[in-house]
Nucleic acid binder design. Structure first.
Lengths: 184, 184
DNA sequence: TTTCGACATGTCACTGATGGAACGTCAGAG
DNA sequence: CTCTGACGTTCCATCAGTGACATGTCGAAA
């Protein structure tokens, strides 16, 4: 149900059409809650049916401009203040780690190395993005910054974990095969 | 498609029934890839149709014991080595952060405080769990430990971020309302 | 004048996940 | 002997998300 509230949130900054919202999603929320066009238009319809938003005006090319109603604003507040965020539960990447026993230590290390690399690149990308944001723009940018910082810290943590894990696997390798002596 | 490979992974440690697998899921993979019973049995059927697993034997109470085939093992290896893990993309919690402009600074701080608290508890829980695992058991436990460490680092990062974010919001509050002077 | 890219919405088939109902079996405790 | 709890499977409705397709408008440039 989060898409619903994402739309209410965006609309509560001002009226917009489905098309506008789609762009807003891609610009700002893409990294925390991506949405496709079909989902978005569908949800807008349902939101309107439920009376949480209304069509303000219809413009050229069938453009419909939506605005939040009081009910919608109340629903958004309720979600923000009283609904517990659902934690992330699925990690494709960690799932693979459980099955490292099925591949060689070298392959496992290579896998972790790639993850390390990608996390590092992501961290760089976000750090750069962080530079480009005006220091104190609108609320949206101010709070978006918090999310960005989360991404940054998350990538760095990921990177450090991968480094640590590589050493763990190497240590395990040595324990399992004490005879072999590979160069580091 | 990850459930598929999770099942192949579990089965490659030895034959098991759907019921066994469900328990294994709950014990070991629940934190990285939860699955419900209905999904699991359905997937087992499809896996068998595709020839990636076979029914080894049928026991009492309609119990079917499955085992991986060579094709299945190959598929697992392929997934482990060549398929890029899909990164996590949706964060209900961060989505809310974007809409902090809709609530008061105090409410935002309270929200972040709760997150901080929960992350701390999760970190404690995982640290404790880490103690209970035998230092060098089977492969599965050794590599599960890597995942556990990820969770630990992740929770700690989350906690620290929330602390940092609370201060950010306070700073923003003071910038926006320089007259007011609240106790810390 | 045609054509192209941006604007704009709607719909469909498919997949993965959730949650629950329904059904039946077997061993052991009381 | 009966009941209970663990064992064990199957099916179903529903929902969110994905990706593709269909349809059409409008302004500007070639």
């Amino acid at each position: 149900m989060s898409l619903r509230h994402a739309l209410l949130g965006l609309l509560s900054e001002g009226p917009a059409s489905g098309y506008d919202l789609l762009k807003l999603f891609d610009e700002s929320l893409a990294n925390v809650w991506p949405a496709t066009q079909s989902q978005l238009y569908g949800e807008l319809g349902r939101l309107a049916d439920a009376g949480l938003i209304v069509v303000l005006s219809e413009g050229a090319r069938g453009r419909k401009e939506y605005a939040v109603t009081d009910t919608g604003r109340a629903e958004l507040r309720h979600w923000l203040l009283e609904v517990k965020p659902v934690p992330v539960r699925r990690y494709d990447m960690l799932l693979r780690v459980f099955f490292f026993g099925q591949i060689s230590e070298d392959d496992a290390i290579a896998y972790l190395g790639e993850q390390r690399q990608e996390a590092a690149e992501e961290a760089d990308r976000l750090a750069e993005l962080n530079e480009t944001i005006a220091p104190y723009a609108d609320n949206f940018a101010v709070y978006g910054r918090l999310a960005l910082e989360w991404g940054l810290r998350s990538s760095r943590m990921y990177q450090e974990w991968a480094e640590w894990a590589i050493n763990e696997v190497k240590a395990h390798d040595r324990t399992a095969n004490p005879d072999s002596c590979k160069p580091d």
